[in-house]
């Protein structure tokens, strides 16, 4: 898998930091189509496995949604680089999601996001999380983008 953005570049855009940064690298960016693919390597060291669940590590659905939302911010930054460079606040608006598969330590989670509509003030994104070719989550994410302090 090619690395288009490494974690240093990701940290220039995403405000999240470990243990709440869920994008390890970006492997595909298609500006014209408005599409990006990111990777989250799921490992037993991820903090949430300690409690979710003891002796039965299952990646929480909300964390997968968060990972897809972080991938959506990266897509936004690709399409609206001038706005992203100013480090605005990114806010969840609405999430509609279906969960299809249990994700466990050792899985490589592919986060595929494609724009439905991106404006300066926010966006709607079709998002999928896959393990190999199997769909784990499908979601539509609506988010707002606001300049800090506005």
């Amino acid at each position: 898998m090619e690395t288009v953005w490494d974690v240093d570049k990701i940290k220039e855009i995403l405000p999240q930091r470990p243990p709440f940064l869920f994008v390890d690298k970006v492997t595909e960016i298609d500006e014209e189509k408005g599409r990006a693919v990111c990777v989250k390597n799921v490992t037993i060291n991820d903090y949430f496995f300690k409690g979710h669940f003891p002796d039965n590590p299952v990646m929480p659905g909300v964390i997968m949604i968060e990972a897809l939302a972080q991938a959506s911010i990266i897509l936004f930054a690709v399409l609206k680089p001038d706005i992203a460079a100013k480090h605005p606040d990114y806010l969840f608006g609405k999430v509609e999601a279906k969960f299809h598969k249990i994700v466990r330590p050792g899985d490589i989670l592919l986060l595929e996001v494609a724009k439905k509509k991106i404006l300066s003030s926010g966006g709607i994104v079709d998002a999928k999380a896959l393990v190999e070719k199997d769909l784990a989550v499908s979601a539509q994410i609506t988010f707002g983008v606001k300049a800090k302090g506005s």
């Binding site: 608006g93 609405k94 439905k116 509509k117 404006l119 003030s121 926010g122 709607i124 609506t142």
Partner: peptide, 14 residues
């Protein structure tokens, strides 16, 4: 709100 406006525009466009 602005996010509903975004949804309205996207729905009409589609």
């Amino acid at each position: 709100d602005s996010m509903m406006a975004l949804e309205i525009v996207a729905a009409i466009e589609k």
